Computed example of a mutant assay.
Amino acid sequence: MKKIMFICLGNICRSPMAEYVLRDMAAKRGIVLEVASAGTSGWHDGEYMHCGTADILDGLNIDSRDFISSKVTRDDWQYYDYLIVMDNQNLVDMEKQFGKSRKLFKITDLLPENSPYDHVPDPWYTGNFVETREIIQQCCNELLIQIQRGIL
């Protein structure tokens, strides 16, 4: 069973959305994964996700009531097979903490080269949770395809 952690800045918008979307997509396809999320900052440790993210997940009929924000730890690096970040700054922050590794990459690296997205915009700033959902769903779909094919 693959163990995947999604990482963003505060762990209240993008990474929890990716966590719950991937869990739901994997379950519907009969793929067993362990999925979690965390933030690089720890600013929101112990908090629930942003209401915009919760609304998106509710709209997808995904229950997220058990979510609690947390910060990435050294134990996470050891435990998870893949740590998947949402943007370039998250990648830089994680590489500073853990070094470069095949197990650490940006989620949009899963998209085709002609994709207009090289990161997942933070809806905390953009306010566009729908755009975030659309990008995350595309990336999670590709992630599952690569897992099924044995690429990851």
Rank of each mutant, 00 (worst) to 15 (best):
L22A: 08
L111S: 11
N90D: 04
R65L: 10
A36W: 06
A26I: 04
C140A: 11
L104D: 03
G127R: 05
A18Q: 03
N128A: 01
G30N: 05
H119F: 12
D118M: 09
V92I: 12
K106S: 01
I84K: 00
V72F: 04
F129Y: 14
V85K: 00
Q138K: 15
V32H: 11
M86D: 03
N128P: 09
A36T: 12
A26Q: 04
W77V: 00
W77M: 06
D63N: 15
K96I: 07
A54S: 15
R74W: 06
Q137H: 10
Q78N: 13
N141F: 13
D55G: 13
D45E: 15
G39K: 08
P16V: 10
D76V: 03
M17E: 07
I12K: 00
T53Y: 06
P123C: 04
L91E: 00
D66S: 14
E19S: 07
H50V: 09
L9F: 10
G39H: 06
Q89I: 02
A54P: 05
P121T: 04
L83F: 00
Y117M: 10
I56T: 13
L91C: 00
Y48D: 15
Q78S: 13
N141W: 09
T40Q: 08
G52C: 10
Q137W: 04
M94S: 00
V120G: 01
K96E: 09
D55H: 14
S64T: 12
P123Y: 01
D24A: 13
P16F: 09
W77Y: 14
V72E: 03
I56G: 04
G10N: 08
L104W: 03
E95R: 14
I107V: 12
G46P: 04
C140V: 09
G39W: 07
R102W: 02
N141A: 13
F98W: 01
V85M: 07
N114W: 08
D45G: 14
N61P: 02
C139G: 13
V85S: 05
R14H: 11
S70M: 08
V32A: 15
I31S: 02
Y20H: 11
K100Q: 11
M49E: 06
L33T: 06
D81E: 03
N11K: 05
Y20M: 06
V35W: 05
P112K: 06
I136S: 08
A18W: 11
I56F: 12
N61D: 15
G127L: 07
L83G: 07
I12V: 09
S70L: 05
D118R: 14
C140Q: 03
R74H: 12
D55T: 15
Q97N: 08
Q137Y: 09
N61R: 14
K100D: 11
S115E: 05
A36P: 02
D118S: 14
S115C: 08
Q78C: 04
T73H: 03
M25V: 07
M49N: 02
L33Y: 06
I62T: 09
P123D: 09
R29I: 03
H44M: 12
A38H: 03
E113G: 13
V120E: 01
P123S: 07
H50Y: 14
V92F: 04
M17Y: 06
M17P: 05
W43S: 14
H44F: 04
G59D: 09
K71F: 02
F67C: 10
T40A: 08
R23D: 10
